[in-house]
Design a binder for these strands. Structure first.
Lengths: 188, 188
DNA sequence: CGGGCCTCTTAAACTATCTTAATTTTTTAT
DNA sequence: ATAAAAAATTAAGATAGTTTAAGAGGCCCG
């Protein structure tokens, strides 16, 4: 496990001693996932939190009628999981699937809990991580209830140009909560 | 400052020594706000994070056309602010207004930052607070992109029965992102 | 205690978005 | 390289949601 991106991600907010890095290295697990592979399947227990060292994932829910709704995309340097199911150790509402060949580092729930006691600074790191994530979701909610589809699409493209390249319009539509046909017509 | 609810809120996730409580008490500021008073006005610098000891608040954005969108309600025992503007110390996107006579405890940004160094356990408390808030917003986003207005209204009522009593239908409509006329027709 | 303001409801006309289906274009797998 | 599968586009008809307007009920304030 190299984990260059993982460590520099953590060290954006806190500094780590070599020994602490060792502890982290010993608990995180590296995994190569090929394109289209499911990392987590809706309905399964969600045991792990993932860091995308390279590649990209999509998190989505599939309803009874088979309609998919994309909750998030994660590219290099992002953290992702079904956070609801992870923190409550419940059945996943989401599936996670690789959009391309990816390298993930992940940690399971109980190891992470233990790591918080071993390295209390990590509480600060995740406090900041969740704080930013919360703000991001709030802004998305506000966009969702106050903007037109056209405006929301424009903001998505402006905010996530690299994701826009990587994913299909169908997936963007399912992130915005509209049909691909309608998104197609909006783009003109 | 009594702050009974504030301390028991914090002690849901961490335990505090008497001395630590003293430090917190010395930094948090109590404020009575009468019904309808603005606690924060959109466009102002957002300096403080609020805890609702009693009463209730609404956080909303007003767009150029004067349309209001409600981002959240906060009742007794909730934390609230314009989190985007607070953590970035930027102009508020939201206004906060008292729905009824309320007692708030609040802390300013720099005092809170300092408090994190003085009481590192608080990082854990806020890590958990933001983690829960993030999960809550993610579920709201998912509801927003996957459910009908009727389903979202039903979930709102089921999840927040006490808020449903306290606020107008117009405000619930602006939380769901629909017009009050449409919500009225959906209810039949 | 009355007037005015705000909320809620209803309805008609209008606009946004969905559904279905057919066609074209792009991607994937062999 | 080719065949098959998936994505994107287009368009017609249906449904969801908005706008405007009007009227009824409730509640706050002087």
């Amino acid at each position: 496990m190299d984990g260059t991106k993982l460590f520099s991600n953590i060290q954006k907010h806190i500094t780590l001693e070599d020994l602490e890095k060792e502890w982290i290295r010993s608990i995180f697990e590296a995994r190569d996932v090929p394109k289209k592979q499911l990392v987590l399947e809706q309905g399964q227990l969600c045991r792990r939190l993932y860091f995308v060292e390279s590649g990209s994932l999509r998190a989505y829910n599939t309803n009874k009628q088979g309609k998919e709704s994309t909750l998030m995309f994660a590219v290099q340097d992002w953290w992702i999981t079904d956070m609801y199911a992870f923190v409550n150790q419940k059945q996943a509402l989401l599936s996670l699937k690789a959009l391309e060949d990816s390298l993930l580092f992940s940690v399971n729930f109980h190891d992470l809990e233990a790591l918080f006691f071993k390295i209390p600074k990590l509480e600060r790191f995740f406090r900041i991580l969740f704080q930013n994530a919360y703000v991001r979701e709030q802004l998305r909610v506000l966009d969702g209830i106050s903007l037109t589809t056209e405006e929301r699409y424009a903001r998505f493209v402006a905010k996530y140009p690299q994701i826009t390249q990587k994913v299909t319009q169908k997936q963007i539509a399912s992130y915005l909560g509209v049909t691909p046909e309608f998104l197609s017509s909006v783009k003109k």
